[in-house]
């Protein structure tokens, strides 16, 4: 089989499936986030990073352009299907967060699988929705210390969950040997099926 540049149908399918596995986790996570919300002090922001993890894991696995956006979009779309509400808001967020991860990995030409790259991607994803949150949630009207706290916690969460945890998942996944099916590195592994 000749290897095409860009995404093949198999690549797209694998990416979307990774996105949908995380979509289920995202939906459960929504409840965790909501329950933490009234506690105040933005403790719920500490779990926010989970929502970028699909993009980071998928791009670490496949390392091709477009994977991060696609995975995050699939996860967001899947979440709206699982929770039975079509949410344009969520789709926009998912696309933006995927884009942020995409940009960070594009800087390394999709070659880096180091943990730091994942951490930077998580931080970028945490930052990219700041303007939208600002406008939608009237954050300009919330006390300043509160906003700074909120975004500090969100960035920490992005670095820890979408960065470190995503990389741990990638490492463990590599050990299972399933990644030989994936991507363009080695194409002589059909026997594994």
């Amino acid at each position: 089989m000749e290897r095409k540049r860009g995404l093949t149908l198999t690549d797209v399918l694998i990416t979307v499936v990774i996105g949908l596995v995380f979509a289920v986790i995202y939906s459960i996570w929504g409840a965790v986030y909501t329950v933490l919300q009234p506690l105040g002090l933005h403790l719920n922001e500490l779990v926010y990073g989970m929502w970028f993890i699909a993009a980071v894991v998928a791009v670490l696995i496949l390392r091709k352009p477009g994977v991060a956006i696609l995975a995050e979009f699939a996860a967001g779309a899947g979440e709206t299907i699982v929770t039975l509400q079509f949410d344009a808001f969520l789709m926009v967020y998912a696309l933006l967060q995927g884009l942020a991860v995409e940009i960070v990995f594009a800087f390394t030409k999709y070659e880096s699988t180091r943990m730091m790259t994942a951490v930077w991607a998580g931080i970028a994803a945490a930052l990219i929705t700041l303007p939208l949150d600002w406008f939608y949630g009237y954050l300009a009207e919330v006390a300043a210390w509160n906003i700074i706290l909120m975004f500090t916690l969100r960035i920490i969460s992005g670095a820890l969950i979408a960065g470190v945890l995503a990389h741990l998942i990638y490492q463990a996944l590599r050990e299972t040997g399933v990644l030989k099916f994936v991507g363009s590195r080695n194409m002589k592994h059909h026997e594994g099926l």
């Binding site: 198999t10 399918l13 694998i14 499936v17 996944l173 099916f181 099926l193």
Partner: peptide
């Protein structure tokens, strides 16, 4: 869940 899904998706 991921490894099983990737296998299935590849097939």
């Amino acid at each position: 869940l991921l490894s099983q899904s990737i296998r299935r998706a590849y097939r």
